[in-house]
Amino acid sequence: MSEATAAAPTASATGRKVKFIITRRERPDAPSFTEEFEVPYRPNMNVISALMEIQRNPVNAKGQKTAPVCWESNCLEEVCGACSMVINGKPRQACSTLIDKLEQPIRLEPMSTFPIVRDLVINRERMFNALKKVKAWIPIDGTYDLGPGPRMAESKRQWAYELSKCMTCGVCLEACPNVNDRNSFIGPAPISQVRLFNAHPTGEMNAHERLEALMEEGGIEGCGNSQNCVRSCPKGIPLTTSIAAMNKDTTKQLFKQWLGL
């Protein structure tokens, strides 16, 4: 650790630069363009710290002054999902992407599956709407004290915890070939959340409501099994297992409806 900090000034003194090609856009309806930047190298830097450097000194590779590149970030430890962007062709979080592990020039693009607000900033509202649609919460409110809920088995809690790591970052939707303007597919993340909340002993009491939401237009049916989602998820959530499990549960729900059970 101390070695790395000691090395920092010498590394910048060598004048090593990190090359960036960033896809930019001034307004949601403006055309996109690319701009190149050269950022002084520092050991252990990540994409966010490079973007901060551009913000501090907004000069492009041609030496022209330009508007600083906009991006979104919060936690800087890969738990909030805000800084998702396409880095060298793959959607991932800018905070946990280390410059040392990337091929240069580094290409940054917004996740264009979502509406682009400006530069690398996107609007992930459709994901939050999807969570509302599938009722991804556990209703516990009553007009009186309902008392303690049923206990959850520890073995179940352990796999359910994996599903709860979802940070609504949007990477799985960006990777999915069926999330686009022509398709109403809800996307992998909210389907996995239905599995999570239906696994909870109290959440299970409203399981049918969430399954029925997945069986509406813009639900689970658009999945084409490309399985890019599970390969791309930064939290390693078994998304395709969740989708198949919800396929099973919605199929059962369908027969229940038909047979009037």
């Binding site: 062709g89 793959k90 990777a175 070939p177 069926n178 686009n180 022509r182 398709n183 658009g222 084409g224 099994n225 490309s226 399985q227 890019n228 390969r231 791309s232």
Partner: peptide, 17 residues
């Protein structure tokens, strides 16, 4: 209704898709 994105995600299952 599908995009083909095997250029960016050249995984076996995506090719099958």
């Amino acid at each position: 209704q599908s995009d083909l994105n095997t250029g960016r995600f050249s995984y076996g299952r995506n090719w099958a898709f």
